[in-house]
Design a protein around this nucleic acid. Structure first.
Lengths: 183, 183
DNA sequence: ATGATCCCGAACACAATGTCCGGTAACGCA
DNA sequence: TGCGTTACCGGACATTGTGTTCGGGATCAT
């Protein structure tokens, strides 16, 4: 790719990430982005069809990273002692932490649809094998339930980023299987 | 209140509800609303400060209704205990069903923030006594978890409105306390 | 050096929100 | 019934944000 293209694209991404730390996505305007990235309006729209396309590219890049090493996770982190799903979840949280500064901007307020859409799609694959069949409850509902539990856990984490991935993972598995509530 | 005011307000609400059945809230424009309600633009803005204010009024009215008898019962009967929460949940679902036709328009896509904001606030009060204290997990997280479980259950219901309140309630309580997953 | 490619900026078209105003019709009350 | 008040109307307007177009200028690769 042309060096100029790379620079522009990178500048736009950098500006976008900066702005996400300051305010929520719907409030960020294209004018702000190109102003901070110091590129022309035309340039922006040659790189990204719309403003939402930028967000989608950004989310895609994050998840590309977060879920990428899923298969060879044993190489990077040693979770051999623990059971599969738990290890994977902690692993994902580790990678997610690197982007946690941007999450409030993407998630709070409206328009978390893009991020959550990507995220839940991935999580559905991840948890697909974790839902037992049951006559009482539709499998669809259970999977949805589990996916939402994790997605909302991450949303909560974005508001309480002082916790570590291990702690968050522990919260998730502690709350999920039935502890912590009366009913 | 002036008869003209009532008529206008009602016409706006009616048009708004009709439109919510057809498309999602962010896509509905003020022009569409006043066109279908057959009122002037000025009239709309004397009744509601902004478009979002209309949505808020609408949500407030729904929850006023859904949670209305909740408080009454709480005063007369003692609902602390296992049967209490379950009964309340089913009761809420019954009332919610009357508005379920509008939920997809409000929830799907972006901008579910208003509805969910109101809803979760109410649910937090409802479930406040249902979370056990625990050293392992912050109480805040547990309450949030429970509230989200129910809120997302309702969102799921909006997409599968063929189920009855009892069934949904059963799903919720079956999935919540730990059935349906391996880990 | 030279042609292709990218960038710039300024102007434009478009859509949606929310405001303002002068005239008109409906209301409530005496 | 008459009269002051209140609400409604519609059309024009200001504003903001998105996305497009175009000609001229800089930068790349060979």
């Amino acid at each position: 790719m042309d060096r100029r293209q790379r620079k522009s694209r990178q500048a736009i991404f950098r500006a976008f990430m900066e702005l996400l730390k300051e305010e929520s996505y719907p409030k960020i305007t294209v004018a702000q982005i190109i102003d901070r990235a110091d590129v022309g309006r035309t340039t922006f729209y040659t790189h990204f069809e719309t403003k939402d396309a930028l967000l989608e590219s950004f989310c895609a890049e994050i998840f590309e990273h977060v879920f990428s090493e899923e298969l060879d996770k044993e190489k990077t982190h040693d979770f051999s002692g623990e059971h599969g799903t738990k290890a994977r979840v902690t692993h994902i949280l580790y990678h997610l932490r690197e982007h946690i500064a941007y999450l409030p901007g993407i998630l709070s307020g409206d328009s978390d649809a893009v991020f959550m859409g990507y995220f839940k799609e991935r999580l559905s694959e991840l948890f697909a094998d974790s839902v037992r069949d049951s006559e009482a409850v539709p499998r669809d509902y259970l999977l949805n339930h589990l996916v939402n539990d994790f997605a909302e856990t991450v949303r909560w984490w974005a508001r309480h980023s002082e916790y570590t991935p291990e702690e968050i993972s522990a919260f998730f598995f502690a709350a999920a299987p039935g502890s912590g509530r009366e009913a």
